[in-house]
Amino acid sequence: MRSDSRVTFSVPAIRSAAMTQTSSKIGYDKISEGDEAPPLEVGPLTRTNFVRYAGASGDFNPMHHDDTIATQVGNPSVFGHGMLTAGLLARLLKDWFGPEALRKFQMRFSKQVWPGDTLTCTAKVTGKREAPSSDGQVEKLVDVECAVTNQDGTEVLTGTATASLS
């Protein structure tokens, strides 16, 4: 399982070649109902991860970085932004289908994410269909159910997504 691996490239040409590879999205004809994405594991998450996401998203709700305030309202500590969890799951979908393929992504946040949690993002194809697109063409759509679970196997986020493949 891939766990927050940082691959760095020093030469732009190699980066481009790597990109071609990482964006070699799966074709509509190659995917079937029941297929699963390679899971993405991220963690253990730290307060620094939360603070970094706060800065990157501009969401400075103190529940996500200030233990004093978070514990005053009954939380054991700060907890992660729901949209940080969502962003990690979106990354899995993007890696699977390509950066331009997503058409829909909807989710429900069911549990909070705490410092020290290790999250696993998963996705599974639930159906394939062809539908007319806004420009009069036929779009080949893949529907998936997706989830993020913590190290105890508890779901912290559940969702569905639709991608357009060629």
Partner: peptide, 13 residues
């Protein structure tokens, strides 16, 4: 770029 890095996504795209 900063947003992608906060999601630990180092894809050069």
């Amino acid at each position: 770029s900063f947003f992608a890095s906060a999601l630990k996504d180092h894809n050069p795209v």
